[in-house]
Simulated assay, not measured.
Amino acid sequence: MTPGSTTAATPWLVRPPAAGHPARIFCLPFSGSGASAFSAWPAVIGDAEVCPVQAPGRENRLAEPHYGTYENLAAGLAEALAPHLDRPYAFFGHCAGALPAYETVLRLAELGLPAPDFLCVSGQPAPHQAAQDRMLTMTEPELRAEVESFIRGRGIEPRPDMVGMGLTVLRQDHAAAKAYRRTEPVAVSCPVVALHWRDDPDVALADLDGWRRYAHQVDIRVVDGGHYDFMDAPDELQRLLARRLRRPAYGKGNAG
């Protein structure tokens, strides 16, 4: 393909990846959300094209059946991404989105496909500690209040239909999270970067130590902001991702 052309469209990505960028970052959002969680991110970070992942059962894929389990999600995503792994790439997964991102890396290895340059897990304890998420034990009224608070936090007054739709997706995603069990760590072949958000009230820095068992190289970093501040693509996060994907053969990186 010539620079600037695009590869084939897939419903798993909100836009077809462009061939003109030397690297890609595939981004998975938190439970109850979709690819719009990355709508404020730039299209390109450093040399890497930002590729938000859209799982079935939400937003423009709302009419499709929910993926059911993280393993199913990883299998479908790995198949969809296979044609787009022809250059350096990484995964970024926030909160529960880090878990299917991890499972996808394992699935790609099983298929003999290229490994990512790194897996970035943001605000999420390791897979064998995933059941500790406080939201998984919330009652229906508590979940409703959480959804309403999140929507208001984004500067929008929550409408009943908006809250109802958010709750439906969140319940299905939580069912997948509750069914997920990985009691014994399986290491990925790529480095893992685990991000702690300094003002996150639910995930402490020590909660990320479990990721050290999932790769030979694990870098735990503290970044400024709260649990959902990744959605605004803060400069500190962009610099970190750009540096990690910079390679001499693609020496156009502009992050400091």
Rank of each mutant, 00 (worst) to 15 (best):
C120S: 12
D224Y: 12
A19E: 15
A131S: 15
P201N: 09
A176G: 03
L237N: 15
V121G: 12
H94G: 09
Q124T: 02
D133P: 00
L170I: 02
P158T: 02
D229H: 15
P125R: 03
P65T: 12
H21W: 12
V169F: 01
A37W: 01
P65K: 11
P100I: 00
P17K: 08
A115Q: 12
P191K: 04
V147L: 05
D117K: 04
T168M: 10
D86I: 01
D235F: 14
T183M: 06
S189I: 00
C27S: 02
S36G: 13
G226D: 08
P158M: 03
G164W: 00
A82K: 13
A255H: 05
L99A: 09
Q129R: 13
Y228T: 09
L111M: 14
S39I: 05
Y89T: 08
A187M: 07
P127T: 06
L111R: 15
Y70M: 07
P56S: 13
L108S: 08
V105M: 07
T139F: 02
D200Y: 02
R24H: 08
A82R: 12
D219K: 13
Q129L: 14
A175Q: 14
E49P: 02
G4K: 09
G155C: 06
W211C: 05
I156K: 02
L85S: 09
G46S: 07
E64K: 12
R154A: 10
D202L: 09
G210S: 03
V14E: 09
A98D: 10
P29C: 10
D235T: 15
L195S: 06
A115M: 10
S122T: 07
L106G: 08
L81A: 09
T139C: 03
Y70S: 04
R107F: 02
P56Y: 09
A43R: 11
G76I: 03
G46Y: 05
L106K: 10
R221Q: 15
S31K: 01
D207Q: 03
